[in-house]
Simulated assay, not measured.
Amino acid sequence: MADNKLSVDADSASKSSGPIEGRVGVVVIGRNEGDRLVQCIDSLTLMGLPIVYVDSASTDGSPEAARSRGADVLDLDLATPFTAARARNEGFARLLSIAPNIDYIQFVDGDCEIEQGWIASATDFLDQRSDVAIVCGRRRERFPDASFYNKICDEEWNTAVGESEACGGDALMRKSSFVAVDGYNGGIIAGEEPELCSRMRTKNMRIWRIDQPMTVHDADMHHFRQWWLRAIRSGFGYAQVWWTTRKTGKALYSRELVRAILWALIIPLIAVVGGLFAPIFLLILPAIYMAQTARMAIKQGAFNKFSWKVAALNIAGKFGETLGIFRFVSRLLKGKQGGAIFYK
């Protein structure tokens, strides 16, 4: 469950369609986003919407920049471990204190710029679909060609439209639906959106992706170390969300956990143990990884160099994910929650 209780007087879904002013509020979260945060807030201020910016100990003047653009700024107390989920929950609570009558909340990460027309289109969609709790759209990278890693992120955002299992960090949510499930689970470090959506689906709420430009994201990822930390964060999130949802009958990320442990732990362990008796096992190990890399690359296009690079990176990423799984298990055994794993 969420780390704080949320309250609302009535389900606002019954209100008729109309202008977004007075009906939509925005929660932006960020940490040392610099110009990206400025672009994010500037894309929102002309709409006349209440904006809450939740800052997590930035040292680059982000809170001041947000205030100068009319945002209500909430500085998180980092005596409690930081998570994006906790930041969104606290931002939502602050938003309700200044705009209690809104119908919908637009959550957006501080490294994203809202596309023109998105909030109006998303609001109209939710007005027409009372069975939908969350609507999201198309996210794209601002500089997909700036680095190999940015391009990978741009490919990741190319997801199918229609009913979805989950949303990402950028999404428009129905206030009453968000409140009905007590918001995000504030202790989850990564994968908080799928966990939230899972609880919503148990209450017959639906999540939808529409074919509409939503946000422009700036991954700003240029080095292997950033990508590696992102893989560790993903593995930690897989394990934590699986542990949180394991008793629901629909545990999330089971497949991802099995794949990571298989490729980064079980296969190498079998090869090492087998090598003690027959050295050929150690020679077979590289062949196994090469064959898997080829299989993944060929599915995307045998003559596409980008596909081969992505396939090789995905295999390597299983080791980072497994390290993240071990980190979660270690924290669990020690009874420690810990804070977010940053890759920027």
Rank of each mutant, 00 (worst) to 15 (best):
S234A: 12
S97A: 15
R23F: 05
F107M: 08
D131C: 09
K175Q: 00
S176K: 05
S164F: 06
C197N: 13
R201S: 03
A84F: 00
I114V: 12
A171M: 15
A287R: 04
P50F: 05
A340F: 03
L46H: 15
M200Q: 06
I20R: 13
R140V: 00
Y184L: 12
V241G: 11
D170V: 07
N101E: 06
A2W: 00
C197H: 11
T293P: 08
I41R: 08
K247T: 13
E141C: 02
G186L: 03
D145E: 09
K247G: 08
M173S: 00
G186F: 03
V108C: 07
K203Q: 14
G187R: 15
D127A: 13
A13H: 11
A190K: 06
F92P: 03
A271Q: 04
E90M: 14
L269D: 02
L257Y: 12
A291P: 06
K15N: 06
I188D: 05
L252T: 12
S234I: 09
T248Q: 13
F319P: 02
L126P: 10
R255V: 04
A84S: 08
N89K: 10
S7F: 15
Q240Y: 05
D77A: 11
N89P: 09
L76G: 02
L229G: 02
I102A: 08
S234M: 10
E195W: 14
E256Y: 14
A180Q: 01
N150C: 05
G61Q: 07
S56E: 13
S68E: 14
K250I: 10
S7L: 13
G317I: 11
E64M: 03
L282A: 03
S56P: 07
C40P: 09
L252G: 13
L78H: 04
S68T: 05
R94W: 00
F236V: 05
E141R: 05
L323V: 12
R88I: 04
